[in-house]
Each structure stands twice: as structure tokens, then as C-alpha cells.
Design a protein around this nucleic acid. Structure first.
Lengths: 220, 220
DNA sequence: TCTTGAGGTTACATTGTGGTTACGTATAGG
DNA sequence: CCTATACGTAACCACAATGTAACCTCAAGA
């Protein structure tokens, strides 16, 4: 959710969370660029914002291979036909005029997400695997040679990230940005410790989680 | 495609062919053994079949050096889904629950194949190369004539910098500014020593790392 | 309120990296 | 040909990077 009105964000955050979603709010389009946008399932964009407008942001996101699949719902105070058309022209999936009821927003979010879950998002593979190591991204479970492993959230995030991009070296800084919740601040050493814990749990597959001294970690 | 339901096979065959693939169907796991499995790019296996199950077949294929690289997508009936998938650890690359839409199957096939075709070595082969010398900027590795070299971070930074701007002469001062972490203070001689160490590791290619006395170093 | 576990930090051991130094060799300028 | 300077390189060693156990905090449940 990108909107510069703090109060509105709070209300929507609460209601969307109540409805079972995991909403996150930022207050300017610029902030969005510093996030891992790919990891979001839906964007609620305010059109009128200081700095970059919601339309401008949408144009950029739809222009990138990485993010153009993410459904977008615009929130706007403008109610003219032109603006609506401009929004849809940018690939908007819905359009909600202010003032709106919270219930309406939640309903539209639900509708757009269900529409998308049948289509493109079901194309995402649900499991990652490497030899006898299998990661179920839906059940959030890991099995090694048939044996169920108990990885914690952080360990799971690290392993699935590295396995999804096997062969790539991640710096500690990148891992913190990609496998940790947004906004948390931890030291680099937290990565080492969680890598160690994760290695211990995956047994012989730990040999594939290699340290590239001076660079970071990778799965190979 | 291995499934004992003739009708289902026909539908999938038609749609996969329509999508540009060259599908082939057999109706039991036993029949698969008589085929040249290595020549297939992907296997769609029904789990529940008369005779050998899809799991059993997958276990055999993953156990063989010849075939363990072939991605497998399981087709599972709803009642066997959960427990079976948690336990199997067979290295499946995806699974699709019955009943499924044909479109979903095609989409998953596409996703898995694209992941394997480009994801094998690395996602973006950001590499620099010169004759038989290859620098993988993602994996942070250097290979010379196919042989993997173990360069340290500083050596890697020096070589990749010079190779990226081949033909340009870098003064020691420039190299310290570009290949060393910001803020560190080292003497010029540190450059010499690291150049020497790097040269030693790249073998015959060391001849291309030339000293321009009084100026600095360059790669030519 | 109590329990439990996730996970961040710290401390310490260990290893590898790489800076410095010393000395030998090559090069340029006279 | 001589000499000052630049460079190559082995050796030494400080410290940076990493593995890991231990401790502690915080939050989610019970």
C-alpha cells in the first residue's frame, strides 16, 4: 500500500490484516523502489502523492519484467473518466474512488487476488528441489531424503532463497535484505549464525551451502 | 507423460503440442523403462498407477546418474496429496493436484522448463571472458580453460576490473581506489603483491597482465 | 502469568587474507 | 657501464573473516 495519508494507511492496514492478508504500507512512491517489490502479491497505489505519482510508479513497475505481473489497484480522489482510463491503460486491475468504505477495499482486494490466483500466480512452482532436498514453498516445509526437517522461518527463508538462485553468491547484506523481514536491523553476524543453524539441520546437504570467503554464501 | 488414464493423456498431449512442446505419453511406469528416458526434457508422472507408482519410478530415475537431472512434475490425486508430498523427498520440481486445469499444467511445464534451461548455470550469465579465461561476476568465480581457479576477493576485484577495461593502464593509486574497499589505506606495494599473487593463479594468462613501468598495470 | 522457542548478540577459537618488509632483479637515465 | 628507482616475490605476521557455543531478549502461545 502506497499512500501518503498515515491515518488512512493505518485503517486499511488493520482491516486487511484482519481479513487475513499481510499488508505493508509505505508513504511515497520513492520508498517503493527500495523494496523487493517482486515479493508482493498486490499493490494498492494512491494516485495523488507528493513526489512521484501512483501512475508514474505503476508505469515503471509495469515496464519491468520483474514486476509487471503484479496486480495493481489505484486509490484516487479524482473521479473523472480520464483518470480512470489512464489507470486502466497502465494495466490497473481495479480502481477505487475516494471516499470509499473500508469494506469495499477489502472486497476489491479479495476479488483481484482470487482472479489472479487462478491465472498467473498458480504458475509459480510450489516446490524447489535439489537432489533429495525438497522445499515446499506452500507448506513451508523442507524434507531431506524423505525426512521432514524443522527449519525456522529465517532458516527456511535463507535456504529457499539460495536454492531458488542456486549458483549465485549472496553477500551478507543482500541476504539480510532478502531473507529478513523488511525494516529489521541486524548485524552481519546474524547471517553467519543462521547459516550455521540451517546447515546443521540439513545434514549432508550442508556441503552445498558454501562460504565464499570475502564474498558471502551460495548454494551450489 | 506417464498416466494410465487415456483420456487425460489425450487432452494433455493435444494442449502441450499446441503450446509448442513435443509430448509423448505412455500408460505405465514399466513402459518408461523401455524408453530412452535421457532424451526427454521433462517428465509428468501420475502418482497413482497400476503396477509401479509414479513415486517408485521417480526414485529409480533420480537414482541413476543418467536421468537424475531430468525435472519431474507429479500429478497427484487429492486424497494422497498431503502425506505423500511431505514424505517423498524425491526431488520433484513441482506437483499438480488433480483435478487441474489444462492451462495450469501447461503453465507449470513452461515454468519448470524455463527455470531449468536458464537456471542451471546461473540466472544471468554476467560473465567477462578473454580467450579461455572466464570471470563469472555472479558466482564470483574465475575459470581458465575450464579449470576453476580460487581467487581471493582482492585478486578477483583486480582481475575483473582490468579485464572489464582491457587495454587501459591503471595506476596503483587508481587500482587501490577501485579494487579495494572504500576507506582502507594501503601502500602502493600492496598492489604489486596482489598482482603477483593473481598472476600466479591465472597461469599462462598472466602474460596478459602487463606491467607498464612507471605507470601501472593493464590487461591486454 | 508462565513457558517456550526463535533468533540476535557476544565471545572465543580457528583459519585465511592480505599488508608490510626485505631482498633480489630489471629498467631507465646519465 | 653505473646507479637510482621501479618492480617481482618470498616470508612474516597482524587482523579480518568465519564457525560456533552460549547467553539473552522478545514475542507468541498456553
Amino acid at each position: 500500500m502506497v499512500d501518503d495519508e498515515q491515518d488512512l494507511c493505518d485503517i486499511l492496514l488493520f482491516n486487511l490484516a484482519w481479513a487475513g492478508y499481510e499488508p505493508q504500507a509505505v508513504h511515497s512512491a520513492e520508498e517503493v523502489m527500495s523494496l523487493d517489490v517482486c515479493s508482493f502479491d498486490l499493490l494498492l497505489l494512491d494516485v495523488m502523492m507528493d513526489g512521484m505519482s501512483g501512475f508514474e510508479l505503476a508505469k515503471r513497475l509495469k515496464g519491468s519484467e520483474q514486476t509487471n505481473h503484479i496486480p495493481i489497484i489505484f486509490l484516487t480522489a479524482k473521479d473523472t473518466e480520464d483518470d480512470a482510463l489512464q489507470g486502466f491503460g497502465l494495466g490497473a486491475d481495479d480502481y477505487i474512488k475516494k471516499p470509499f468504505s473500508v469494506r469495499e477495499v477489502v472486497a476489491r482486494v479479495k476479488a483481484v487476488l482470487s482472479r489472479f490466483s487462478q491465472g498467473r500466480s498458480s504458475e509459480k512452482p510450489k516446490v524447489l528441489s535439489f537432489e533429495g532436498l525438497t522445499i515446499d514453498l506452500v507448506q513451508k516445509t523442507v524434507t531431506a531424503d524423505g525426512e521432514r526437517l524443522e527449519l525456522t522461518r529465517t532458516e527456511f527463508a535463507l535456504l529457499s532463497l539460495m536454492l531458488r538462485h542456486r549458483g549465485r553468491v549472496f553477500t551478507r547484506h543482500e541476504l539480510i535484505g532478502l531473507a529478513w523481514p523488511k525494516g529489521v536491523i541486524v548485524t552481519n553476524r546474524a547471517v553467519d549464525v543462521n547459516i550455521t543453524r540451517m546447515r546443521k539441520k540439513i545434514g549432508s546437504y550442508a556441503a552445498h551451502v558454501v562460504t565464499r570467503q570475502g564474498f558471502g554464501y551460495m548454494f551450489q
